[in-house]
Design a protein around this nucleic acid. Structure first.
Length: 640
RNA sequence: GCCGACGUAGCUCAAUCGGCAGAGCGGCUGAUUUGUAAUCAGCAGGUUGGGGGUUCAAGUCCCUUCGUCGGCUCCA
């Protein structure tokens, strides 16, 4: 007999070898029907895996976070089985099929056929078929030798079996399809019904470009149809908001892929918005007592030898030779800031020193990896380096985290933090790492940030905290980062003079908040679908004269906004009022005022917003005051 | 860089088997003088990404080159 502890704390007695399925049944028939698997002593297990010792058991149903990884993994097998049926068992070699964030993929080697989007419906049909048959899924533990015999004609599986350290491996079988798999899986193929194939692309076996290129099918799956529909709708919405489309359409930026691949031209409207971001950033950096600097774009390679970039980053750098000297276009700002630090003799009383720069950096990225503003070859970092004493680390980190809060909140972004600790391969002594990591942890806790620890994921030169923000479509973007660097101060022999006149090595903190201004701008375009908060909009108010007769008076009227620092334009094009309202609204201008007889004579205004709302009888002075306040306080939503 | 898909007017997209390169939107010009999401008419706009080849004939087929999009470990 075994004692089973349930999530509510109650303990029940069962036969030796009882399965989670039987336990679920004993609780209620309904729970059994909804059960996908179980957590047994904190491990995910199949519903029919026997339990042979006293354990705590929690049944996983669709509501649990682990559910998706079970049913999507099963769906990956169903897809693989469908692919096998469609293209023929002898033609398909199976690689791996893991669950990923919002779905799953499976890699196939099918020499006889190149999968295209036209194949999707065929595969989906066959998946439905397999689901309809509700085939039983069974698990078998085999010795590696037995498994090797079973997968004799599956080279990728054989390679995986060889690499597995355990003596036995598990194999899941559903009808005519068997796969090497850790599991767990659903008990049968009929339990989850809704799946959709999303895309197909190439992927190297084990992600190594020296290996063979396989065909990877991406797909997703949900328990409920409306969840799947919502996900598909989200993808479509994201497509509509694609900054690569919206940005040029709204006149914000362009990319001439022939002349300057991976490098954006910011157009007049985009530059206004970008400058507003810079303005916000400068205000906040001033509040946190940073000094702003500018460093040269091109510097002698000597500097890059000293910084280590020559050894570790050369492949990504641009070079230029003049007068027998080799120069490098800067890919990072830190070495320049080192030189600025060294320009003075620093006393311990001077610390911390916070050097900030909108540093324009060039990095060669392989052509295939370029992506709009998200992956570029030139970008502007809101980069700063904080030089401080060891005992100042924690306070400095807290300050940076407050700064991040200040910087993200005008955009309404929520974010989460990830702490990466000392990797195997690291420099600096363990004691310094411990102090630094403890300081980062303490700062995270004290600032009230929830965070996740990525053990051993830090850079070789120091631990770091990364910030991921979530946009309005629920997508996550890594932007802010705080990194401690034990290497640079060594390489540049930075020192400060201590109270006993001794030379002491300062600690260096590298941090960026937007990360890349260009990338952050791209995220903002998609987040707001181009309808930025008013303070960032290139045009904030648009005046639409009802007819040519009112053009001059409309210009005079517009001046009143201009004088108050509100960006205003008058749309005098010779079309109907309706048409111009439409134009302005498509350009996402926050406020529109149709200007005619009434307005010319000083009567109260009707304000139309880009959301299609109209506020009637608004006094001009009140309107100006409200908009000015909306701008100066950087409000997220419109006032009308 | 590699694999796949793709590249026609500023934008979105047509063009049957290889047989005269077209439409809508946008732009320009004119008419109209408009009160809160598309007034009407006319005009201009192209070496079909570039180069080469096959053919009587190429947007269409072949080669090459440039670029775009999706992806290239979140590991059975």
């Amino acid at each position: 007999m075994v004692d089973i502890t349930l999530p509510d704390g109650s303990v029940k007695n069962f036969e030796m070898g009882v399965t989670p399925a039987e336990i679920a049944k004993s609780i209620s028939e309904g729970l059994f029907r909804k059960a996908f698997g179980a957590m047994v002593n904190g491990e995910m297990r199949d519903l029919y895996s026997p339990i042979t010792q006293n354990s705590s058991v929690a049944i996983i149903t669709e509501k649990d976070p682990q559910a998706a990884s079970i049913f999507r993994h099963t769906m990956a097998h169903i897809m693989a089985q469908a692919v096998m049926h469609v293209f023929g068992k002898e033609n398909v070699k199976f690689a791996i099929g893991p669950v990923i964030d919002n779905g799953f993929y499976y890699d196939f080697d099918i020499p006889s056929h190149k999968i295209t989007e036209e194949d999707f419906s065929k595969i989906e049909e066959e998946m439905k078929n397999i689901i309809r048959q509700d085939i039983k899924i069974s698990r078998k533990d085999l010795s590696k030798k037995e498994a090797a015999e079973l997968f004799a004609d599956q080279p990728y599986k054989l390679e995986l079996i060889t690499d597995i350290v355990d003596d036995t491996v598990s194999v899941y079988t559903q009808g005519d399809f068997s796969d090497l798999c850790r599991g767990p899986h659903l008990p049968s193929t009929g339990m989850v019904k809704y799946a959709k194939i999303l895309s197909v692309s190439g992927a190297y076996w084990r992600g190594d470009e020296k290996n063979k290129m396989l065909q990877r099918i991406y797909a997703t799956s949900f328990v409920k149809k409306d969840e799947l529909d919502a996900y598909v709708t989200m993808i479509e919405e994201a497509k509509k908001r694609d900054h690569r489309k919206l940005g040029p359409a709204l006149g914000l930026f362009m990319i001439d892929t022939d002349i300057a691949p991976g490098m954006a031209f910011f157009l007049p409207r985009g530059t206004i918005a970008l400058n507003e971001m810079r303005k916000l950033s400068r205000e906040i950096h001033k509040k946190y007592e940073y000094v702003e600097v500018e460093t040269p774009q091109i510097m002698n390679v000597k500097l890059w030898h000293q910084s280590g970039h020559w050894d570790h980053y050369k492949e990504n750098m641009y070079f230029s030779e003049k007068e027998d000297a080799m120069f490098a276009v800067k890919p990072m700002n830190c070495p320049g800031h080192m030189l600025i630090y060294k320009n003075n003799v620093v006393s311990y009383r001077d610390l911390p020193i916070r050097i900030f720069e909108f540093g324009r950096v060039h990095r060669y990225e392989r052509s295939g990896t370029l992506q709009g503003l998200f992956r570029v070859r030139v970008f502007t970092q809101d980069d700063a380096h904080i030089f401080c004493r060891k005992d100042q680390i924690e306070a400095e980190i807290i300050k940076v985290m407050n700064l991040i809060q200040d910087m993200y909140s005008p955009f309404g972004f929520k974010y989460e933090a990830f702490l990466s600790t000392m990797p195997q391969d690291h420099m600096g002594d363990v004691e310094t790492w411990d102090i630094a990591t403890a300081a980062l942890k303490k700062a995270l806790e004290e600032s009230g940030n929830r965070y996740t620890v990525n053990e051993g994921d830090g850079a070789f030169y120091g631990p770091k905290i990364d910030f991921y923000l979530t946009d309005s479509l629920g997508r996550k973007h890594q932007c802010g980062t705080i990194q401690l660097d034990f290497q640079m101060p060594e390489r540049f022999e930075l020192t400060y003079v201590g109270p006993e006149s001794e030379q002491i090595r300062p600690v260096m903190i590298h941090r960026a908040i937007f990360g890349s201004l260009e990338r952050f701008f791209g995220i903002l375009i998609e987040n707001f679908a181009g309808a930025f908060p008013t303070w960032m909009m290139p045009e904030q108010v648009s005046i639409i004269p009802v007819s040519e007769k009112f053009n001059d008076q409309a210009d005079e009227f517009a001046k009143k906004f201009d004088l108050q620092g509100i960006r205003v334009s008058v749309n005098k094009s010779n079309t109907t009022v309706n048409y111009r309202v439409r134009e302005e609204q498509l350009r996402k201008v926050p406020y529109m005022i149709v200007f005619g007889e009434k307005e010319a004579s000083g009567q109260p205004l009707n304000i139309r917003t880009r959301n299609g709302n109209t506020a009637e009888n608004v006094n001009l002075d009140d309107f100006i005051k409200t908009v000015k306040e909306e701008i100066s306080e950087r409000k997220l939503t419109l006032s009308y």
